[in-house]
Nucleic acid binder design. Structure first.
Lengths: 230, 230
DNA sequence: CGCAGTTTTGATCCCCTTCAAGTTGGGTGG
DNA sequence: CCACCCAACTTGAAGGGGATCAAAACTGCG
């Protein structure tokens, strides 16, 4: 949403919409599978994760949502959610009633476009995650690159360092890897020298080397010009 | 696109749009990664597949397109393709110039909705594929269930049997599994008794059993009422 | 009939899982 | 301020699913 290309006038118009603010505490669902969202959601603060639960009970994250990300676009077509959205940290959420949605999309052309844009990026990330199922270490590196860029875009990276407020088990559920193996891959990455991975944060020293290692190319995120992340 | 819910009048209006018909022969790209699609595509006949190529050269399908499926919705937002689309068989394609797209989406509200609906289904399939990365045999079974339902919806299933015009290697590239292992899983499924898998076709005997085995639930495909598949 | 693409089979290796235990660290209450 | 506790992280050993390499058999087609 906070994307270049929309006239300032329209950005203001979006801000003036009747958003309702709500906070969700860690480990609670923001949106549950099977329900029909009655609002469009916008994450203001905190991290959330889209997930499904498998037949045997294991959880699979299919995407992380950072501040500025949307969810519940399903409201556009009045379709049930096919996955749940969990607050990975305490979150601050803005809601826009679905009833407003149609009207807004009509009157603000660039709003409709922004929704499409957001959805296409989400889809691009899903595709990347599918392609990354080659080896766990590179997948992990690639995920951290993705998060680094996305955090950078919203100005949350300082000196290459950013907050990673999720557990290794969560990361494992995003890579389809056990917590044990996730931990081993984390340790390998630490030894690589490209980055530091501590409790709750990541600091990248050698962006070039890291990108090369996991073949990361941020273009799929369609971010246009990414601001400097220093 | 051929979905319930749109008034017959509007369906006719869509059919009257200036579609251009074009045929693409097997193993040729319909749309290539990095390009900016100038049209919206609709598959009329044949099968196509979305794919990316990995760092080390292997191919990964991220979805199959059957007759009635759309591609190139990227044209809506003038964004470059982040994946390619390959004709898996000889295909017949209908194209709608992107220049028409904005206008049509405005004048036919249900057309815009149909695009959203199609995209959300595509996304649901992507998520399912991500979740299925547990064991190859169930993944294969689940994929065949998906294809069975989708073929059924477009009336291409007879007596539980439908055409599967792709190779085991292609299927492997969709499951992230080698051709050798794909073959072994195919053989296991044959021995299961739920289905017959021959060259170029699949015939399902025991839908219930198969569904139960791979925990397939067609609801994520958001198909509304599926016509009988007999 | 011969060739090329596909399917099949066999043997060996390795990434990741599983199970099980230990360690660290932050938060809470006495 | 320390003792405790729970969540997160870490480590070890053994087993299995799938990869890899290599070759054979089958299919359809020109």
């Amino acid at each position: 949403m906070r994307r270049a290309g929309a006239p300032a006038r329209e950005v203001a118009a979006v801000a003036d919409l009747p958003w309702a603010i709500r906070s969700v505490s860690r480990n609670r669902d923001i949106l549950s599978i099977g329900s029909r969202p009655t609002s469009l959601f916008l994450v203001l603060e905190g991290w959330a994760g889209r997930y499904n639960v498998r037949r045997e009970g294991s959880r699979r994250f299919t995407g992380f949502m950072l501040p500025g990300d949307l969810c519940g676009i399903h409201a556009v077509t009045k379709v049930d959610m096919d996955h749940s959205v969990l607050a990975l940290t305490n979150c601050l959420i803005a809601e826009l009633p679905a009833t407003q949605l149609d009207r807004v999309a009509q009157s603000l052309p660039s709003f409709a476009k922004a929704l499409w844009h957001a959805k296409l990026i989400e889809e691009a990330i899903l595709r990347k995650w599918l392609c990354n199922s080659e080896d766990a270490q590179r997948s992990l590196a690639h995920l951290l690159c993705e998060l680094h860029v996305r955090m950078s875009v919203i100005g949350q990276v300082n000196q290459g360092s950013f907050a990673l407020p999720i557990t290794q088990a969560d990361i494992g559920d995003a890579l389809s890897v056990t917590p044990v193996h996730t931990n081993r891959m984390v340790q390998k990455l630490r030894r690589s020298g490209w980055m530091e991975i501590g409790r709750g944060f990541v600091k990248i020293f050698d962006v070039e080397g890291l990108y090369r290692y996991c073949a990361f190319n941020p273009s799929y995120l369609h971010l246009g010009m990414v601001k400097g992340s220093s």
